[in-house]
């Protein structure tokens, strides 16, 4: 740091601010300034609303990932899981098993949430009971969920057949309440719930403890496996909530649904200041990270500097740079 010669009290007040907690918000602000310079339309309400809406899937999934990563786990299967949950949900919608459009949609939503929770439970139980690295377990289930989706779709895509149902479901993605798009409201509700659980409940405290030091948690009488498993269940439910918002957008699940979402979700979490080795979780930082990812994509589209086909490369670079920054901040 440049001001090493600063007086002792000044140094202390500087140290009190956790740079890792502030960094993502600074980065977001810098992006805003940069975006405004690149294209005058960037700061328009329409564009920004659009950006936030589009970030909904990753933001919601990343809130779940914050829990998993805080507890020292990792879930690579979220993208495939999203495709699988979307696929099964649409197949159920197409059966018309429940009378009435809204009843049908409500039933399908419940099914999707249950499917997501079960997928997460599977990840959690295999990881904890099987004592297998979460990286390996979720790499495996990533392949399984993806293949199941392709199998259910018979190699093609699964689309909602009923036009009335599509019309009835459409507002969940495209609608708004008092001008605020519904996906944005969903992000906020999930984030507030997530922050409450992580910061204000016993379970949240235990998540941090398990990620911090598993042995200590165990000796403190915390059921480490139960806490770990529940973080995966929360992740699964978050994936399902993202799917609830995703399905009305296109009305279909395809083999490319949710492709590389795991990269984006984990990137959002890491940018947000959550430690990848566990023990630190920042829900609002995660939301900020998801916005940063979407803003970078948006700026790339609005400017001509880099081809938008390279968005994946840029996002990949961002997670690596974010890790480097975290490391250098941690060394002070």
């Amino acid at each position: 740091m440049s001001n090493t010669t600063a007086a002792q009290p000044a140094k202390r007040s500087l140290g009190d601010i956790d740079l890792r907690a502030v960094a993502p918000f600074v980065a977001l602000a810098v992006l805003f300034v940069f975006g405004a310079m690149v294209n005058p339309n960037f700061l328009g309400l329409d564009n920004l609303t659009n950006v936030v809406t589009r970030s909904a899937f990753i933001a919601i999934i990343a809130i779940g990932a914050t829990f998993v990563i805080s507890a020292g786990g990792l879930d690579l299967s979220v993208g495939s899981m999203a495709a699988f949950v979307a696929g099964t949900m649409i197949l159920f919608l197409n059966t018309g098993a429940v009378a009435g459009d809204s009843g049908m949609i409500a039933a399908a939503m419940c099914l999707a949430l249950a499917t997501g929770a079960l997928c997460g439970l599977a990840n959690g139980l295999i990881t904890t009971l099987g004592r297998i690295e979460p990286f390996i377990v979720t790499l495996g289930t990533m392949g399984i969920f993806r293949a199941l989706t392709i199998y259910l779709a018979e190699g093609g895509s699964i689309a909602m057949k009923s036009q009335e149902l599509r019309a009835a479901y459409r507002p969940i993605y495209f609608g708004n309440v008092l001008g605020v798009p519904i996906p944005v409201i969903v992000i906020l509700v999930v984030a507030i719930l997530g922050a409450f659980i992580l910061y204000r409940t016993r379970f949240g405290r235990h998540v941090m403890a398990v990620g911090s030091n598993e042995e200590v948690a165990r000796y403190s009488g915390i059921s480490v496996n139960r806490v770990r498993t529940l973080t995966y269940v929360i992740q699964g439910i978050c994936v399902a909530i993202a799917v609830l918002v995703y399905v009305p957008r296109l009305g279909a699940a395809t083999p490319t649904t949710g492709l590389l979402w795991e990269l984006q979700a984990i990137t959002a979490v890491v940018i947000g200041g959550t430690a990848l080795r566990g023990g630190v979780g920042r829900i609002w930082g995660t939301i900020c990270g998801a916005l940063i990812l979407e803003l970078v994509g948006n700026i790339m589209v609005l400017s001509d500097m880099v081809s938008e086909y390279l968005i994946g490369a840029v996002q990949g670079a961002i997670i690596i740079i974010a890790m480097l920054i975290q490391r250098s901040l941690g060394r002070r």
């Binding site: 409450f196 910061y199 204000r200 409940t201 016993r202 949240g204 405290r205 235990h206 941090m208 403890a209 990620g211 911090s212 030091n213 200590v216 948690a217 403190s220 009488g221 915390i222 430690a275 023990g279 630190v280």
Partner: peptide, 23 residues
């Protein structure tokens, strides 16, 4: 547990809860 504060460490696994069930 390194990443939480002193009080959280003291009460780890035996947290004091408010009547609303929050920490």
């Amino acid at each position: 547990a390194d990443n939480v504060d002193t009080a959280a460490n003291l009460y780890l696994g035996r947290e004091i809860m408010t009547p609303w069930g929050t920490l």
